[in-house]
Design a protein around this nucleic acid. Structure first.
Length: 286
DNA sequence: CTTCTTGTTACTGA
DNA sequence: ATCAGTAACAAGAA
């Protein structure tokens, strides 16, 4: 479940490894993730190169040196972008990657670069996708996203304005990509915990000081998670051989039944809210 | 066998 | 028209 911090980690690593390298070959092993663009993908990418790799929310945007298209990659829940340079793994995605035998049964696309570097797009559940878009289509797509929570435009003023006329729960609010881009189920729960607010609380009842607490929690949780190189890379190793991992810092997600390590009195509850597993401490959060 | 996992969208109902 | 809630998608784990 790559969310903003995981996608950002992949973006940084791929930028470091792939930028400017000529794309020698693109193999489409299974076509579902690119629908009807199989031929176009090869036409556009072969002989091309990535000029920049950007991110909007959980969406990766690959700017190409030549042609009118931009490549988009969304990993959805189980997508991976595994990069192999001769001698090591550089970037990951979903955990449990068997890096000893790529491509594996979940590899859908394989890129080969001029220097022998390889990039594998793997996806167990095939919800993720690659898509070539024109500038107009890209603009359309990006218009639907809210502000980047770690960007300069994410101000308290912008944040407070998003509560106007909304009556939904805090959890749904945080997961809404058109309000804030990039938060998923794990960080939504962690942000609520940090802000001491119940995820099932209706946002219309939040006071100004609670909204300010939330604003600060969003930034601090995501900043720290990016710094720790995300949560989902249990066997991820970066270019320097260091393991990343926000996993030990999780306070509620995946900790149901365990004691809250803030109040020490209560146990972490797990409920189903808005169709999602939702974790919180009923003692700390209100 | 059933239930659970989640990002996004299409659909439904108010 | 607007908005909120939910089913659906997929495939594997428990």
């Amino acid at each position: 479940m790559p969310e903003l911090p995981e996608v950002e980690t992949i973006r940084i690593d791929l930028t470091y490894v792939l930028l400017g390298k000529g794309i020698r070959d693109v193999e489409v092993l299974t076509g579902r993730c690119i629908s009807d663009q199989k031929v176009l993908l090869q036409q556009v990418l072969k002989g091309n190169r990535f000029e920049a790799i950007r991110r909007r929310g959980k969406l990766l945007i690959f700017d190409l040196a030549f042609g009118e298209y931009t490549l988009l990659i969304h990993l959805k829940m189980t997508g991976q972008l595994i990069c192999q340079i001769p001698g090591g793994i550089i970037a990951g995605g979903h955990p449990s990657v068997d890096v000893s035998s790529l491509p594996n049964k979940y590899t859908h696309i394989r890129f080969t670069f001029a220097d022998g570097t390889e990039l594998f797009f793997n996806d167990l559940r095939t919800f993720g996708y690659l898509q070539l878009v024109t500038d107009a289509e890209l603009e359309d797509k990006l218009r639907s996203y809210g502000e980047e929570p770690l960007g300069e435009a994410f101000t308290l003023e912008y944040f407070l304005s998003q509560f106007q006329r909304r009556t939904t729960s805090l959890k749904v609010f945080l997961l809404n990509q058109s309000i804030i881009a990039g938060i998923g189920n794990i960080y939504a729960d962690e942000i609520c915990y940090r802000a001491k607010l119940r995820p099932d609380r209706n946002v219309s009842s939040l006071t100004l000081s609670e909204k300010k607490r939330l604003f600060n929690a969003i930034q601090s949780i995501l900043q720290q998670a990016v710094q720790k190189r995300g949560t989902t890379f249990s066997d991820f190793v970066d270019a320097s051989g260091n393991k990343g991992g926000y996993l030990p810092f999780l306070k509620v997600y995946g900790r149901e039944g365990e004691r809250c390590n803030r109040c020490g009195d209560d146990f972490i509850e797990k409920i189903k809210h808005a169709g999602r597993g939702t974790h919180f401490c009923a003692n700390c959060q209100s």
